[in-house]
Structure formats: C-alpha cells, structure tokens
Simulated scan of single mutants.
Amino acid sequence: MLLRQPTDEGFNVLVNHVPFHRANMEKVMKPTAKYVTILREPVSRWYSVVEYYSLFKLALRLTKEQYGAIKKSPLDDFLSAIAKCKYFSCSLGYNGQLFDLGLTEKVYYTDEHAIQRKIKTIEKELDLVLIAEYFDESLLLLKKMMCWTFEDIMYIKKKKRRNVSREPTRIEQANAIRKWNKGDVMLYQRFIRTLWNKIHKYGPNFQKDLRRFRGMNYVTTKSCVNTTSSDINGNYILQNRSDLCQNLNRDIRPYTEMLVNIVNMRGQ
C-alpha cells in the first residue's frame, strides 16, 4: 500500500500501525534497519481496544441503548461475537498483539504449539520488544541498542486516558479475558522474561542510568508542559517553546535506520 517506493537503498524509518511481516518489510527498508515493537499487558490492552473501537456495538450490531446495557453483562456472548465478527477492528480484540505480529489465522489461537512456534519466530525477527508497563526500562535498552543519548529518549505523555474513565476489572472478567486471549498472554509473558534478561545483561549501571533518565525526564516535563491543565483530548499543554520542548512535542522523530511497529493501542 506504499504510494511511493524508495529511490535509493530503502526507507530510513517506518512508524505506523502495521502488521509485522519481516520479509516484506525488508524489501523497502534499509538493510541495517532495526525491528522494534511494544507490547502491553493483555487485559488492560483488551479493554482499551474495546473502548477505542466500540467493539461491543460493532461486533454485536447493537443499538445505542443495547450498547449501554450489555457493557455490564457477562462477557461470554461478546467474546464469541468478536471471533465471528468480520470487521478488521474485531481482530484486534482477539489475540490482537499476536495478530499484529503475524499470526493472523484465528484457527491457531487455541493451539499452544502453533503459538509457541510463532513466538520463537518473533524472537528471531525482532531486535527489541519494549513493554508498556516498563516503558522507561525499555527505552534504556532501546537507547543502548541504537547508540543514542538520554536526550534522544526523553518524552512527554500524550493522549493519556483520564483515570476517571477507567473502571475496575473484576477478577472473573480478567480471567475470562486472559483465557480468551491466551496467545497474547503467552506472548507477553515470554517478552517480559526477555526484557529482564536484557536488563540483567545491561550491567550494574542500569539502575543508576534509570534514575538519571527519570530525573532528566521529570525536569524536562516540568519545563515543557503545564501539568495542571490539559486540552480536550487529555494532552498536556506545551508551555515552553524551546527547541527541546518542540522536539518532544512531535509525533515522529526522524531516527535513522529504524523500524518501529507499534502494536499497543495509540493513546489508550
């Protein structure tokens, strides 16, 4: 679906919501590209997907009144409806992270051996898997892999969902969602272990570097944004027009030789 093919050795960077297919991506990326993704805890991600895409309404073809009522009902019928739903958005509610990483055939979502084989392939094809719940730790690993500076990985939070919109998850609901998204759970658990193995290999300076990075990021956030107010979308309001703050406010920074395949839901 690329409108324009690269005229030289390939694109420098691809940052987009795109299902991962290493062989196809290598056709358009530079030979030295790094392949990176980010995963999120499956239950919280599932609720985010459902809300973001209004999957209750989409999968069950509900009226507005029915939509409001069924959100408080048992999940079984809804989970089954997602599996049968033909809309692309519904596929993101059924092992959606595994789907985005290339296991698109739903028939394999109940086959643990097929899931394990796919996860092993993903391990070989991706250079780094970040974890949303350990975002700062993940960024330090990305910094080291890419030979970047601390300034290169500083960030401000954008489009963060307000806490008032978050509803507590009942244990039985969470267990049902984990069972339904077993592939995503297996994927997440594998790369949580991988993350901590990489942190161990980072060396004794990891905690020192983490404290330094968080301190720098805290000072930068205080300098760049008004943390006591936000716009209608929940974004912090930029209060400093320095070059650093302007860079942090960009959606995409032109890092060379890197491919980022963002899997977790943007802004949720």
Rank of each mutant, 00 (worst) to 15 (best):
R190P: 00
T37M: 02
R266Y: 14
Y67Q: 11
E125D: 14
K120E: 14
R162S: 06
Q268G: 12
S44A: 09
L130N: 00
I122C: 00
E112H: 05
T37E: 04
C90N: 11
G93D: 06
N235M: 01
G102L: 11
H17G: 04
G102H: 13
K106N: 08
K144M: 04
V164R: 09
E172A: 09
F78Y: 07
M1I: 09
N233T: 11
E65M: 02
K208R: 10
N16T: 12
N12P: 13
P42K: 13
Q239S: 15
K179E: 12
M145C: 04
Q268M: 09
R211V: 13
Y109R: 00
E151T: 08
T121P: 05
N233F: 15
E26Q: 12
L39N: 01
L103I: 07
P168V: 05
S165C: 14
L248N: 00
Y87K: 14
L139N: 01
V129M: 00
M29A: 13
Y134N: 04
Y87G: 09
I232M: 11
K144Y: 07
G93N: 13
N181M: 05
P168Y: 02
P168I: 03
K143L: 06
K30C: 09
N249E: 00
H21E: 14
F88D: 12
A176D: 02
N217Q: 04
M29H: 12
K160V: 13
Q173K: 01
L141V: 02
V164E: 13
S89K: 14
V107S: 10
C224Q: 01
M216E: 12
E51V: 11
K143Q: 08
A176R: 09
D251R: 15
D251Q: 15
R4M: 15
K208W: 09
L103Q: 08
T121I: 13
E105I: 08
Y87W: 14
Y155R: 01
M146I: 05
M154T: 10
F191C: 00
F88P: 09
I171F: 05
D243Q: 14
T169L: 07
P74A: 00
K30T: 08
C245T: 04
L79P: 02
N95F: 01
K120N: 14
K222E: 12
M25F: 15
W46C: 07
I199L: 04
K201P: 08
L103D: 01
R250N: 06
D100E: 15
Y53Q: 10
I177G: 04
F191Q: 05
G10P: 09
N233G: 06
L14W: 15
R214I: 08
E257K: 12
R45W: 12
K106T: 08
V15A: 10
M186S: 07
Q189C: 06
T227H: 09
F206K: 01
M29V: 10
R193Q: 12
I199Y: 07
A59I: 13
R253G: 02
G10M: 10
F11I: 11
I237L: 03
I38K: 00
T149Y: 12
I262S: 07
A174T: 03
I153R: 02
R253C: 07
I115C: 00
K208P: 03
Y67L: 05
V50K: 11
A23S: 10
E9L: 14
K72T: 07
S229C: 06
S242V: 05
D77H: 08
Y67M: 07
I192F: 04
K144L: 09
K158C: 05
A114V: 01
T256Y: 15
M25K: 10
V36Y: 04
S229K: 09
K34H: 13
R117F: 05
N235L: 01
